[in-house]
């Protein structure tokens, strides 16, 4: 288990991670958040690249910056390093010094991803480089795998194959994977649990069902004049609002379990129906909720 307790990381004036508590047990975890939320910093802290200014990070029973902890973790950074003028063989040889790598898995993934063997990596496209390092990280025999923006630059077809491979290999080898992305769609059908980071703090975590439990999305046509402010005045916690012609689309966070429809009746709706919310929207709404709460705290 990865145990993060009260972890804080500061860079001069900026606090990148602030008193964060999080336990990562097993399965595939999606780490999401806006740009600059602290996702990469958190992954680097878990991998032992950065040291926490306050708090502790334990990988099983070892502190994250120890040799024993590092043996359990493989971190694939956003922009991975390959030795100068190296090819696939050279990259494999370099990492083989430090990690036990399953060559059969590595070779099969290289073949599956159609990566040319005798071409220098500097000649690879961004997507090909990503695929090579994804293949490498999946073949390394480490218990924990940290993937930072690993799906950037992959086309949708390849992305599906990669996701299938991650699920298959991690299930076989009982790996725990933490994959960060700002593209929530890319994480759909892959992750078991989302961890949302906002401004260096843990905003919320859980599976999609629990994260979207209190969100209700409506589309409505009202006889009375109506806008976001009118809806807010009804005491509703509006997370998103859009108007196209006379059709209003809005999402309400009904944490307090109010009788929303009774409240909306006052605006005399000629159409009022609930609409399904997709995964991407749930995560975006969670981020919007975190933003809103931040503003609320600032005001207070």
């Amino acid at each position: 288990m990865i145990q993060i307790s009260n972890a804080t990381k500061r860079f001069e004036q900026k606090t990148a991670i602030s008193s964060l508590d999080l336990n990562i047990e097993s399965g595939v975890i999606g780490l999401v958040g806006q740009n600059g939320a602290g996702k990469s910093t958190l992954l680097r802290m878990i991998a032992g690249v950065y040291q926490a200014d306050e708090g502790d990070i334990f990988i099983d029973t070892y502190l994250s910056n120890t040799k024993q902890a590092k043996e359990l973790v493989f971190f694939l950074p956003d922009d991975p390093y390959a030795p100068v003028s190296s090819d696939i063989k050279a990259v494999f040889e370099f990492y083989q010094i430090f990690y036990s790598i399953d060559k059969a898995i590595f070779d099969s993934l290289i073949t599956k991803f159609n990566l040319p063997m005798n071409v220098r990596i500097s000649k690879y496209s961004k997507g090909m480089r990503r695929l090579l390092f994804i293949a490498l990280s999946l073949s390394v025999n480490c218990k924990y795998l940290l993937l930072d923006e690993a799906f950037d630059g992959l086309d949708p077809l390849v992305l599906e194959t990669v996701k299938e491979e991650i699920v298959r290999i991690c299930k076989d080898k009982e790996k725990t994977v933490v994959v960060s992305s700002h593209n929530v769609t890319a994480l759909e059908k892959l992750v078991d649990k989302f961890v949302i980071i906002h401004d260096g703090k843990l905003s919320s975590d859980g599976d999609l069902d629990s994260l979207g439990e209190t969100f209700i999305k409506y589309q409505a046509i009202f006889d009375k004049q109506c806008n976001e402010e009118t809806l807010s005045k009804l005491g509703l916690n509006i997370l998103s609002y859009r108007k196209a012609g006379s059709l209003h689309n809005f999402v309400i966070d009904n944490k307090d379990n109010k009788d929303i429809e009774k409240a909306l009746e006052t605006l005399k709706p000629s159409l009022l129906e609930t609409v399904a919310i997709d995964a991407n929207e749930i995560i975006l709404l969670q981020m919007a909720l975190a933003n809103k709460e931040d503003k609320h705290h600032e005001k207070a």
């Binding site: 680097r44 991998a47 032992g48 690249v49 040799k67 590092k70 043996e71 973790v73 493989f74 971190f75 950074p77 922009d79 991975p80 390093y81 430090f98 990690y99």
Partner: peptide, 15 residues
């Protein structure tokens, strides 16, 4: 001297 190398080298399982 580079973030890219730093990410790789500081995570290696060596003291």
């Amino acid at each position: 001297y580079s973030l890219k190398r730093g990410d790789t080298y500081y995570q290696l399982p060596l003291e």
